[in-house]
Simulated scan of single mutants.
Amino acid sequence: MKIYKPEWQCTFSVYEGVEEASSWKERIAWRLRQLADKLDGSGRTIKIDCSVTPHVSRQDIDTCLGKGF
């Protein structure tokens, strides 16, 4: 497991729905996610935009998020 030093800077943006400037494809995708959330009944769909400086691999970001980073 990698250990990162505090000089990393990370910015998270969390969205619970479609943004106003989204394309028609994104709007359809969010409608499908909302339908899936209703059918599942126990979940919640969010979108996380993560910007990390310096660059960290997507796999490492996913690992950190999964462990409660």
Results as ranks from 00 to 15, higher is better:
residue 1 M to N: 06
residue 1 M to F: 02
residue 1 M to R: 03
residue 2 K to Y: 11
residue 3 I to D: 14
residue 3 I to P: 00
residue 4 Y to K: 12
residue 4 Y to Q: 04
residue 6 P to V: 14
residue 6 P to T: 12
residue 6 P to S: 09
residue 7 E to P: 00
residue 8 W to Y: 09
residue 9 Q to C: 09
residue 10 C to N: 07
residue 10 C to V: 12
residue 10 C to G: 11
residue 10 C to H: 01
residue 11 T to I: 08
residue 13 S to K: 15
residue 13 S to P: 08
residue 14 V to C: 12
residue 14 V to R: 11
residue 14 V to M: 13
residue 14 V to F: 15
residue 14 V to A: 14
residue 15 Y to C: 08
residue 16 E to Y: 15
residue 17 G to P: 04
residue 18 V to D: 07
residue 19 E to P: 00
residue 20 E to M: 05
residue 20 E to S: 10
residue 20 E to D: 13
residue 22 S to W: 01
residue 22 S to A: 14
residue 22 S to H: 00
residue 22 S to D: 05
residue 24 W to F: 13
residue 24 W to K: 14
residue 25 K to S: 06
residue 26 E to W: 02
residue 27 R to N: 07
residue 27 R to F: 06
residue 29 A to M: 13
residue 29 A to S: 10
residue 30 W to M: 00
residue 30 W to P: 01
residue 30 W to V: 05
residue 30 W to Q: 00
residue 30 W to K: 01
residue 32 L to N: 09
residue 33 R to W: 08
residue 33 R to I: 02
residue 34 Q to D: 13
residue 35 L to T: 05
residue 35 L to F: 10
residue 35 L to Y: 06
residue 37 D to T: 06
residue 37 D to F: 07
residue 38 K to A: 09
residue 39 L to D: 15
residue 39 L to A: 10
residue 39 L to N: 11
residue 39 L to V: 13
residue 39 L to Q: 15
residue 39 L to G: 05
residue 40 D to A: 13
residue 40 D to Y: 14
residue 40 D to W: 15
residue 41 G to W: 02
residue 41 G to R: 01
residue 41 G to K: 01
residue 42 S to D: 09
residue 42 S to G: 04
residue 42 S to K: 06
residue 43 G to P: 07
residue 43 G to Y: 09
residue 43 G to E: 05
residue 44 R to M: 03
residue 44 R to N: 01
residue 44 R to H: 12
residue 45 T to A: 07
residue 45 T to D: 05
residue 47 K to M: 10
residue 47 K to D: 08
residue 47 K to S: 03
residue 48 I to A: 11
residue 49 D to V: 14
residue 49 D to G: 14
residue 49 D to K: 09
residue 50 C to D: 00
residue 51 S to E: 10
residue 51 S to C: 02
residue 51 S to W: 06
residue 52 V to N: 03
residue 52 V to P: 05
residue 56 V to A: 05
residue 56 V to R: 04
residue 56 V to G: 00
residue 56 V to K: 08
residue 56 V to F: 08
residue 57 S to E: 07
residue 58 R to K: 12
residue 58 R to N: 06
residue 59 Q to P: 03
residue 61 I to N: 00
residue 61 I to L: 13
residue 61 I to H: 02
residue 62 D to N: 11
residue 62 D to M: 10
residue 63 T to P: 03
residue 63 T to A: 15
residue 63 T to F: 13
residue 63 T to L: 10
residue 66 G to E: 09
residue 66 G to M: 05
residue 67 K to N: 15
residue 68 G to S: 07
residue 68 G to I: 10
residue 69 F to K: 13
